[in-house]
Structures are given as structure tokens and as C-alpha cells.
Amino acid sequence: MGRRRAGLNFRRQRKKINLPLVREVLSWIVEIVVVIGLAYVLVSFFGIRTNVVGQAMEQTLENDDDILVNKFAYIISKPKQGDVIVFLPNGNKKSHYYVRRVVAVPGDTVQIKDGALYVNDELYKESTDVASMEDAGIASDAIKLEKDEYFVLGDNRNNSEDSRYANIGNVKRDYIIGKAWFRFSGFGSFGTIK
């Protein structure tokens, strides 16, 4: 009769691998890697993050607000009146990004008379509350936009460097980076840009 002796046992016992648990862990790792990869591709190719410089877009956007820019939006469509766009002035890659609102699109005629904006000889209906413009700049005379040009203004009209000034002028389609679509700054201050 074989009795088991008490004491030390130096025989090696094989540990059983829990295959369902290993599969579950590997599944989670693969999902995390795929999500991180997809997020990287989306941000790299379809969007960028930048910040607002200056008070030109105040009440809509404040100085130093962080914004997300949808670079893909204007690949499938064109900028339209009321869009808040991000662009490089005159295509200058060394400049910071400018954030302004499109008020006129290709083919439109723009003029500023008595502090008010006229597009195609009609008073422009503002989407935000803006002050009367003190300086019409180059738009004191009627400007006809070419097929790839956009006229942009800051929402803070009397504190904005925009298409009224020769150093910015009409913004060519090639200089537009994308559409500003989401802002966030500080705690609880975030949302889509209108």
C-alpha cells in the first residue's frame, strides 16, 4: 500500500493556463491598439488642434481658446457664408493660423458702406451680434470675388485683421486649412463653433 508521505514535495506541478482569460486579454489589447491607431489617423489626416490668437473673434471665440479644425470638411464641400475657417494669410506657412468668419463666397460682390456689410448689394444678415465697422478698408469700394476667393471678417469687427486690409485681402481656397468646429478652454467651457 502506497501511503503518501507528509513533507516536502519536489515534483514539479504543471500550472494550467486559463485560455479563455488569455483570449479576453488579447482581445482587449488588440481593440486598444486599433482605437489608438484610428485616432492617430483621424487627427493626422483629417484634423488639427490650434489656438485662437487675439480678440478678432470675440464673443464667439476668446484669445487662447483651443480649437479643433476639420481639414476634411472642405475636401468634400466648399466653405459657405457663416463658416468659421482657419487659414494662412496669403499662404504664409511661417504665420500663425488665422480664424475668421466667411461672409462672402466666390462670385459675390462685397462692399462696406456706413459701417455695414453689403453682399451683392444687399445688407448682410449677421449670424452674431456685431458692431458697426469703423474702418471699411479696401472694401469701401465694391470688390468682386474670383472663383477661388473668400471674403472673411472677424466677429469683433473693430478689432480684427481680416479681408478689409491689403495684407490679408481675399482668402484663396488653397490657403484655407479647414473649418473650425469645436472649441475648448478651461473647465467646462467647450462646444461646437457656430
Score class of each variant (00 low, 15 high):
15 K>A: 12
16 K>I: 15
16 K>L: 06
17 I>S: 09
17 I>A: 08
17 I>K: 12
17 I>N: 09
18 N>I: 00
19 L>Y: 11
19 L>W: 12
20 P>S: 01
20 P>E: 00
20 P>D: 02
21 L>G: 07
22 V>Q: 15
22 V>E: 14
23 R>P: 04
24 E>C: 09
25 V>E: 14
25 V>H: 10
26 L>M: 10
27 S>I: 06
28 W>L: 04
28 W>R: 05
29 I>G: 02
29 I>P: 04
30 V>E: 12
31 E>V: 11
32 I>C: 03
33 V>I: 09
33 V>P: 09
34 V>M: 07
35 V>S: 15
36 I>T: 07
36 I>V: 05
38 L>H: 09
39 A>M: 03
40 Y>E: 10
41 V>R: 02
43 V>D: 04
43 V>P: 02
44 S>I: 00
46 F>C: 05
46 F>K: 02
46 F>G: 04
47 G>V: 06
48 I>C: 03
49 R>P: 13
49 R>K: 12
51 N>W: 13
53 V>R: 06
53 V>H: 06
54 G>W: 00
55 Q>N: 07
55 Q>F: 06
56 A>E: 11
56 A>Q: 07
57 M>R: 11
59 Q>T: 14
59 Q>K: 15
60 T>L: 03
61 L>H: 11
63 N>F: 01
63 N>G: 10
63 N>M: 03
64 D>R: 12
65 D>S: 07
65 D>A: 03
65 D>I: 05
66 D>M: 08
67 I>Q: 04
67 I>L: 01
68 L>K: 08
69 V>Q: 11
69 V>R: 11
69 V>L: 01
69 V>P: 13
70 N>D: 15
70 N>M: 01
71 K>C: 07
71 K>M: 11
72 F>I: 06
73 A>M: 14
73 A>H: 14
74 Y>H: 05
76 I>V: 09
76 I>P: 08
76 I>C: 07
77 S>C: 04
78 K>S: 15
78 K>G: 08
79 P>S: 05
80 K>E: 15
80 K>A: 11
80 K>H: 10
80 K>V: 08
81 Q>L: 01
81 Q>F: 00
82 G>H: 05
82 G>E: 04
82 G>Q: 06
82 G>R: 08
83 D>C: 00
83 D>K: 00
83 D>R: 01
83 D>A: 00
83 D>E: 06
85 I>H: 02
85 I>T: 14
85 I>L: 00
86 V>K: 09
86 V>G: 13
86 V>L: 03
87 F>M: 06
87 F>L: 02
88 L>K: 14
88 L>R: 15
90 N>G: 10
90 N>I: 03
91 G>H: 05
